[in-house]
Amino acid sequence: MPTEPACLVPACEARADADALVALCAHHLALAADSGVGEDVLPQPCPACGSRHGLRLPGGMLCATCEWRQGTWPDADLVAPRVDVVYYLRFDDRVKVGTTANLRQRLGAIWHEELVALERGDRTLERRRHADLAEARIARTEWFRMTDAVVAHVERVAGGRDPWALHARWRSEALALRG
């Protein structure tokens, strides 16, 4: 019959709990569980970005997406913050490069398969992107053929980040800056 290893906590002479993922005794497992640090589900969606992914800390919970403190609320009388973005939508073998200050509403009005990237910016940046990708532009539209240059540009802008999480972060920052 194998014996359990010793608890990893220095100076603890107890044996590690057999079912523990980490070699800690029952006492130190309980202390770790009570430390209050870890990932969790928020009790309600974050008021700043809508995420349910939370981070439990000794001082309370934060939204893991935008770091808004759980239990604090944006002033309901204030208009939602304006966050101008240049968006990249994929549909079939094309990409649309457009701009909006109301991302969800705009994307609801455009037939697309996937939001592939976002960058903060307004019409000035949008026009610059259209000029940068002009060789792939589809006749006077905001749609571009999926050429190697377009794919490389979109991948560079996306940077491996989830565009919705990025947008949530920007909205939260805009709320926080308003006070």
Score class of each variant (00 low, 15 high):
122 D>K: 09
30 A>K: 10
122 D>N: 12
111 W>R: 15
52 R>H: 13
116 V>H: 05
68 W>M: 08
11 A>Y: 08
123 R>V: 03
132 D>G: 01
101 A>P: 00
72 T>H: 14
166 L>M: 07
54 G>D: 08
18 A>D: 10
96 K>S: 03
143 W>D: 07
93 D>W: 08
170 W>C: 07
123 R>I: 01
128 R>D: 14
176 A>F: 12
129 R>S: 01
103 L>I: 00
142 E>T: 06
19 D>K: 10
168 A>R: 15
125 L>D: 03
125 L>Y: 03
52 R>V: 12
31 L>Y: 04
56 R>I: 02
52 R>L: 14
86 V>P: 06
10 P>N: 13
130 H>K: 09
59 G>F: 15
32 A>M: 12
6 A>Q: 13
148 D>S: 11
86 V>F: 10
79 V>Y: 02
103 L>Y: 10
144 F>P: 06
159 G>H: 09
43 P>R: 14
41 V>S: 13
9 V>E: 07
57 L>K: 09
138 I>T: 02
89 L>M: 01
59 G>P: 02
166 L>E: 15
8 L>F: 01
176 A>G: 03
158 A>Q: 10
141 T>H: 08
23 A>H: 05
69 R>N: 00
45 P>L: 11
170 W>T: 09
121 G>A: 04
9 V>M: 04
166 L>H: 10
45 P>R: 01
128 R>L: 12
58 P>D: 07
165 A>I: 02
123 R>D: 10
81 P>G: 07
18 A>V: 05
39 E>L: 12
36 G>W: 09
97 V>A: 08
145 R>W: 04
43 P>F: 04
27 H>M: 09
88 Y>H: 14
147 T>C: 01
108 G>H: 05
85 V>Y: 13
38 G>P: 06
112 H>W: 00
142 E>G: 05
72 T>N: 06
161 R>M: 13
140 R>H: 13
